[in-house]
């Protein structure tokens, strides 16, 4: 099988689970040994630290000159300084995409600042990744139950900002139905699962709107990779290539200078 782009991996600590491969170096060794040619990486620390830059900056400093990684900055648009963070990440830190975790930062995607960030990303030519969940909601810490981001909010945001490219990370089967037909919205498949995963997902949103992702190191790489082991009767080699590499390249785009 040809090399793949993994559009959703993480580096750092996650307080709710013991994780393997926590550093970028360990992650790269793990993923590249399994056929990943490029990994879009975000800081786990940036999701829960009060200032996400305390996770973003060390990540950027570690992976900046490694072409294996596409650094994705986690931003919290409820902070007064989010525009400054966005500028720093894109202009000084070489981040190539922005990631929102609205459920962990407690705001709906109808928040005007989310819209402003979508505009900013569109103008900069970088995609906005929306992390819909980090774990199965049934298994959260009992004192920190974080609901998934509503698919309807993601769909509405994407529709309101047609010039911005969006990626729904950790989308699930139900979300795909809400995303069907939205041209500027892609879905990452680490949480999509059913009897014949890729075949059915393509049937809902089309191969052109799906990207491969593993949610490593929180989920087993081998589990996500098995979704690519489709019967050629169900998923053509061309569709597979589209999901594994081409869509990620299109989604990432060429940054505007």
């Amino acid at each position: 099988m040809n090399p793949v782009t993994d559009t959703s991996v993480f580096s750092g600590q996650w307080p709710f689970r013991k994780l393997p491969y926590r550093t970028p170096g360990e992650l790269k060794e793990h993923l590249s040994g399994r056929g990943v040619r490029e990994a879009w990486v975000s800081s786990l620390d940036a999701i829960l630290y009060p200032d996400p830059m305390h996770g973003n900056v060390p990540l950027a400093e570690t992976v900046a000159r490694d072409p294996f990684f596409v650094p994705v900055a986690v931003l919290d648009v409820t902070l007064a300084k989010w525009r400054r963070d966005a500028r720093e990440c894109l202009e000084q830190r070489e981040f190539r995409a922005l990631k929102l975790t609205p459920n962990y930062h407690s705001y709906p995607l109808t928040d005007p600042n989310a819209a402003a960030l979508a505009d900013l990303a569109g103008e900069a030519g970088v995609p906005v990744c929306i992390q819909t969940r980090m774990m199965d909601e049934r298994a959260h810490h009992p004192l920190m139950k974080v609901p998934q981001v509503p698919a309807s909010e993601i769909a509405a945001l994407a529709r309101r900002h047609p010039r911005t490219r969006f990626l729904a990370c950790a989308a699930d089967n139900g979300m795909l139905k809400a995303f069907a037909g939205i041209e500027n919205l892609w879905s990452e498949i680490s949480f999509v699962e059913n009897r014949n995963t890729l075949f059915k997902a393509i049937g809902v949103v089309g191969a052109s709107r799906l990207v491969f992702g593993t949610h490593s190191p929180l989920l087993y790489f081998e589990a996500s990779a098995a979704k690519l082991d489709s019967d050629p009767e169900d998923v053509s080699a061309e569709q597979l290539e589209t999901v594994c590499v081409k869509n990620a390249t299109e989604l990432l785009g060429a940054r505007k200078k």
Binding site: Y220, A223, S224
Partner: peptide
């Protein structure tokens, strides 16, 4: 669930 994905949980 998907048989290959869940087998991947073991193989991983």
């Amino acid at each position: 669930r998907n048989i290959g994905v869940q087998a991947g949980r073991v193989l991983g």
